[in-house]
Design a binder for these strands. Structure first.
Length: 495
RNA sequence: GGCGCCAUGGUGCAACGGUUAGCACAUCACCCUUUCAAGGUGGAAAUGCGGGUUCGAUUCCCGCUGGCGCUACCA
């Protein structure tokens, strides 16, 4: 994908590295967004890397969905996507190097000896679980020689590992708390060396891709010291880390399927505007410092900084997301909205080519402008405001129940249709006067006619102001819809 | 269990030793109004607890509590 801004070869290099084991969820999207903001803010380079080393859990078909989600969000990248599955040799080389310089060793222990234990032992009445973090293989005394070995990192005894985090500050971990983690899994099949673990592939790639800032979820804070140790073993300078707080569900646990929509694709389908979604996401765990919240993407890029990233986990609040959407729906210049609405109408098969240019385009723009203060999500354009784009619509039950009660209505609406049909000119005030005049002669409140007419011409109890609506629909349509409604109005008033 | 991180109204953020603790969402009331929104005005609502440090703590330190994360030959 082409870069949106000129690249600065000395600028920061960041990456977003999803694993195609699921869809792009909002947490990942927010991480991608922050990386992108940072890259664009500093004219740096954004790299997309696919972490697909786990052949079992990896589902290649999910990748397209992730890319689609990123594109919908409006994010682009300058390099990649790079697939880790195609770089296995690099990781093996690095592991060999660690073996050669003494920072790693071959471990012949069966995998089960390390795995399984901790979680399983938890039930033992709170008994302290001492994990195995070192083994005799480390000293060249294989516990089960003959089996295929894994390569483990030889974590230094004693001492501490420190690194800089742009969000959390200087972090220190004592090495004795870090287990001898696996670099290369024991071989399956005939291969002498296996596949890399996350720690290995991430570090090797971040080094080779010259990543300067690792911006990722705070769930990685705990394994960062392992990675720092690896950088040192490979003779490389660690990058600057920036761990961003997690996004939680309303119950304060990490956002997951049971919290409802967590895939960005779902938000696209529900009809959110990407820019509104971006604005909302940006403010989850980050703030420009002041009180301003409505920030267009260009402002977000301009203001983004790692210093503004919070250390507190944030709860995903859908109500606020919807508020952002209504704000964008209302504040954007109409022209920016038209393509979105056009897309929506196309999806619902209501689109007519005449609205693409000329007078049709003008009408379309005016109508969208009229409708938008009442729109919450894009599909509202083809549902409750359907009557503005199609003659085929139905009268909502709630609307007839509410506004088609008065028994005089069938007669009055008939008279109104006649009066409107006789109008020499079709404009807001003419319609207004005609309706009020009729109300006065008939001795009814104007509101009675106004409300009933609204239902008759758009089928809904809720719509823009009546005379603006009439103007948008045009005289012929209003009159014919009014007449066509008469039998239905009759039924309702008798019920 | 161990290690780590975090802690301002229900939610998202401000206030980075001195403010009547601010803004926004949500919520309630009122205004506007032909419906419903939008908009406007106002209300209710927070510094988890306990110790320090300081003339002064939301802010710095310690403890507690609570939440979250990591604790795999997953990423």
């Amino acid at each position: 994908m082409a870069a949106a801004t000129p690249l600065n070869p000395t600028g920061p290099r960041v990456r977003f590295a999803p694993s195609p084991t699921g869809y792009l969820h909002v947490g990942g999207a927010r991480t991608a967004l922050f990386n992108w903001f940072y890259a664009r803010r500093h004219a740096g380079t954004m790299i997309l890397r696919i972490e697909d080393t786990d052949a079992e859990r990896n589902k290649p078909e999910l990748l397209e969905g992730i890319l689609e989600g990123l594109r919908w969000l409006g994010l682009d990248w300058d390099e990649g996507p790079v697939h880790q599955s195609e770089r296995i040799e690099h990781y093996r080389e690095a592991a060999k190097k660690c073996l050669a310089n003494g920072s790693a060793y071959l471990c012949y222990c069966p995998a089960e000896r390390y795995a399984g234990g901790d979680a399983a032992e938890e039930g033992a009445a709170g008994a302290a679980v001492r994990r195995i973090t070192r083994c005799s293989c480390r000293d060249g005394k294989p516990s089960s020689p003959g089996t295929l070995p894994a390569i483990r990192f030889k974590v230094p005894l004693g001492g501490k590992t420190v690194f800089q985090d742009a969000v959390f500050g200087t972090r220190e971990f004592s090495n004795d708390e870090i287990e001898d983690f696996v670099l290369l899994r024991s071989a399956r099949g005939g291969e002498p060396t296996g596949l890399p673990t996350y720690q290995m592939s991430v570090v090797v790639d971040d080094i080779e891709m010259r990543i300067s800032h690792v911006i990722r979820g705070a769930d990685h804070l705990s394994n960062t010291p392992k990675q720092v140790l690896l950088y040192q073993a490979l003779g490389a300078e660690p990058p600057i880390f920036a761990h961003v707080p997690l996004i939680l569900g309303a119950d304060r646990t990490r956002l997951s399927k049971r919290h409802g929509a967590t895939s960005v694709t779902q938000y696209r389908e529900e009809g959110f505007l990407p820019e509104a979604f971006r604005n909302f996401l940006a403010l989850l765990g980050w703030s420009a410092g002041g009180d301003q919240e409505f920030l267009r993407t260009s402002e977000l890029i301009e203001k983004f900084s790692l210093e503004g990233v919070s250390r507190t986990n944030a709860v995903f609040d859908r109500a606020k997301l919807e508020w952002f959407n209504t704000q964008y729906l209302q504040k954007l210049p109409v022209e920016e909205l038209l393509p979105q609405v056009e897309g929506e109408l196309r999806r619902s098969k209501l689109w007519r080519e005449e609205w693409g240019s000329g007078a049709g385009r003008e009408w379309f723009a005016r109508t969208v402008d009229l409708l938008r203060p009442r729109i919450r999500l894009l599909p509202d354009f083809s549902s409750w405001s359907r009557a503005f784009f199609s003659d085929e619509f139905s009268y909502s039950a709630a609307a007839r129940e509410k506004f088609w009660k008065d028994p005089r209505l069938p007669q009055l609406l008939g008279q109104l249709a006649d009066a409107l049909a006789a109008l020499p000119e079709w404009n807001h005030d003419a319609c207004d006067h005609a309706l009020r005049a009729l109300a006065e002669t008939a001795g009814v409140k104007a509101g009675l006619l106004i409300n009933a007419t609204r239902v008759a011409i758009v089928g809904e109890a809720v719509a823009p102001p009546l005379f603006d609506t009439m103007l948008a629909l045009g005289g012929d349509r209003v009159v014919s819809r009014l007449r066509k409604s008469l039998p239905e109005v009759g039924k309702s008033t008798q019920a």
